[in-house]
Simulated scan of single mutants.
Amino acid sequence: MIHVISKFIFHKILGWKIDGSFRGDIKKYVLIGAPHTSWKDFPIAILTRNVIQIPIDFVGKASLFKPPFGFIYRKLGGTPVDRTKSSNFVDSVVQIYNEKEEFRLGISPEGTRKLAKKWKTGFYYIAKGANVPIVMFAFDFGNKTIKVAEPFYTTHDKEADFAHFLSFYKDVKGAKPELFNAENLL
Rank of each mutant, 00 (worst) to 15 (best):
M1G: 15
I2L: 12
V4L: 12
S6D: 06
S6H: 15
K7P: 02
I9Y: 04
F10N: 03
H11R: 05
H11L: 07
L14P: 00
G15F: 10
K17D: 06
K17A: 07
D19I: 07
S21P: 14
R23V: 08
D25H: 07
L31K: 00
G33S: 14
P35R: 02
P35Y: 00
H36T: 02
S38G: 12
W39N: 06
K40D: 09
D41I: 11
F42W: 15
P43M: 09
I44P: 05
I44G: 03
A45M: 12
I46P: 00
I46C: 13
N50V: 04
V51P: 00
P55L: 15
I56R: 01
V59Y: 00
A62S: 13
A62K: 08
S63I: 08
S63H: 12
F65C: 02
F69S: 14
I72C: 10
Y73F: 10
K75E: 09
L76A: 02
P80L: 13
V81R: 13
D82A: 06
R83L: 02
S86L: 11
S86Q: 14
S87P: 03
S87I: 10
V93H: 00
Y97E: 01
F103G: 04
L105T: 01
L105K: 01
G106N: 00
A116W: 07
K118P: 08
K120T: 06
T121R: 14
A127D: 04
K128P: 04
G129R: 00
G129V: 02
N131D: 13
P133A: 07
P133K: 01
M136A: 09
A138W: 04
F139P: 03
D140P: 03
F141D: 15
N143C: 14
K147P: 04
V148W: 04
V148S: 02
T154F: 03
H156Q: 11
D157P: 14
D161F: 06
A163F: 08
H164M: 11
H164L: 12
H164Q: 09
V172Y: 08
A175D: 13
P177S: 06
E178R: 15
F180Y: 10
F180T: 08
A182W: 04
N184H: 06
L185Y: 03
L186P: 14
